[in-house]
Each structure stands twice: as structure tokens, then as C-alpha cells.
Simulated scan of single mutants.
Amino acid sequence: MSSDNPSHSGRPGLDELVPSRYAVQVGDIEVLVISDGVLPIGAETLAYNADSADLAAWLDDMFLPPDVLDWPLNVVVVRSGEQTVLIDAGLGSEFPDFQQAGRLAVRLEAAGIDTASVTDVVLTHLHMDHIGGLLGDGLGRGLRPDLRVHVAAAEAEFWESPDFSRTSMPAGVPDALRSAATRFLEEYRGRLRPFETEHEVAPGVVATRTGGHTPGHSVVRLASGGDRLTFAGDAVFQVAFDRPDWFNGFEHDPEEAARVRVRLLQELAANREALVATHLPFPSVCHVATAGNTFRCVPAVWDF
């Protein structure tokens, strides 16, 4: 995967002052974390079961605004063997109200990645900020006809008739999520490669269903040589290190989501492997350490 500076490419509109991609090597596997931008999110949605004073104190401690904050949106491209795997697809251009997100297509171009080279897509789940890039004129028109789209069977089944009864989302969001997922399934059903519990997508690239956030939510584990990295999707949020018991409003089974993230964070702390997640601050590459009954996010030192 090319990491050429786009300012030397001669292509207008691709040069950015803020870095939006970061390369990591996991053994023989090449990993590129790409920022799709940021989404606005109400602070209360981050932890709707938290005491308001406790949430306000946490936000203040983290130098975050008390009401609406920018939620990072990260996507990963993996090259293993002869395969190029896109893990999640960002928001895309179908939702113009979110003007600071949906940047994946232009940032793939800036990184020198032709969407036609993508052999596989793994979707951690079917929320619109993970599938939107595959809809409309974003990435969709450049993707190869034999593209394989890997998603947990339970996830595709859930979105045939989704249940939002245990979520706590802003008004209008459930309808938008339902519409995006319905459209995605209609457009990509013939390319889907559903799996039950675990599936090796490419050498050393394994998708594993966790459930919790959504019934078919999955993480992607990378392993090559002695190196390991987990892309956790929406299993882990920034607040989860300090308060893994707080419920995110987008979780369809909040109690199970909390159990999933505690198990995952405990495992990552024990084996010391790297973590990347959708909504951690870009580039989100970090390690997990225990801190009593909670956890610490230890940012990786950038490798230049």
C-alpha cells in the first residue's frame, strides 16, 4: 500500500494539513488506518446510564466538550498475501448533514489505493457509519464485481427486521440506520459471504463474531509471525477504558456489549497485542493496560 505524500501527486484537492492515514506492520501483514472524518455525537449518547455529574466530570477530565463532541471514525485497509481487505467502509457521501465525515474514497485515492484492488470487505456490523461508503457513488462504483463481503450471518439476519427497543439513540437515527442497512442488503446480497462464528478472510486475518453492540457485531484479529493486532469495531469506545460499565446509546444489547468489551480488554491487556477501534482518536493504535478494576489506553509511539 502506497503511503506517498499526496502533495507530490499532482492531483488537486488531496493534500491535507492533518494526517489522515497511518501505516502499521503486523508481521508480514500491511495495515493502513484511515480516518473517515468525525461525526457529531451528543455526550449523553456516550453513556446514557451514567450519572450526569459523573459523565460531566469524565468529559472535563478528558478535555472534551460537555454537550456535543466529535466522534472519530476510523477504517482499516489490510494487505495479506494476494488479498487487499477493507475493514468497514465509513459513512460515505449519502448523508450530507455530516459534513466532516465520509472522506474514505478521497483518502484511499490519496494513499494510492485503487478501490478495484480491494478483493474483500469485512463489516464489523451494519450501522450506517460502517457501510455507507459502499452505497451510492462513494466506493461502490469502483469496486470489482467479484468482491467478497464478509459479515456475520446473525448481523444480516438482524437487519431484516431490526429491534431498537434497548437502544438510546437521537430521534430519527433508528430510521436512518434501518434504511441504510436495507439498502445495503438489497445491493450487496449477491456478494455476501456470511459466517457463523469465525472466518479466516485472508492469511492471518480472522473475523470473529462477538455480538453485544449488535447481534452480529464482529472484531477482526490480525496475526503474523509474533505480531498481533485487533480491530475492535464498536466493541470499545474511548470512555470504555475508564467506565466499561457505561452503556453507549447505539448498543442493541447493552449488558452483553459491556461483557464483550470487558472480556476483550482483559484479553488484550494480558497478551499485550495492539488495538485499533472505529471511534478511538485517530490513528487509535494503542495497547491496553489494567488499572485496578478498569483499564488504560496506552497510545503507541508513531513509527516514522
Rank of each mutant, 00 (worst) to 15 (best):
F164I: 02
F295I: 05
L59P: 00
A300R: 05
F195D: 01
G172I: 00
E160P: 00
W71T: 01
S20E: 01
L86C: 04
S20L: 10
M1R: 14
E200W: 09
V24F: 15
D15F: 15
A235L: 12
L108Y: 11
N248E: 10
D114L: 14
D245L: 14
L108K: 13
P299C: 04
A291K: 07
V121C: 09
F164V: 01
H130V: 03
A47T: 03
D245S: 15
L185R: 01
E157V: 11
E109R: 15
D227W: 06
P65L: 10
L108I: 15
D28K: 08
G132D: 01
F250P: 00
V26M: 10
A43K: 05
V276N: 07
A111G: 13
R296H: 08
V24A: 06
V75G: 03
V205S: 07
A270M: 14
A171M: 04
H150E: 06
R261C: 08
D175F: 10
V118E: 14
P162C: 04
T167W: 12
E30C: 08
F295R: 07
R296T: 05
H199K: 01
D253P: 09
N5S: 09
S35Y: 12
A181V: 07
N49L: 10
V75H: 08
A223E: 09
E157C: 07
S35L: 12
V151M: 11
P40H: 03
W71A: 01
W58G: 02
H217Y: 14
T45D: 02
V206Q: 08
I113H: 11
A47L: 09
V33C: 08
R141C: 06
L268S: 07
F295P: 01
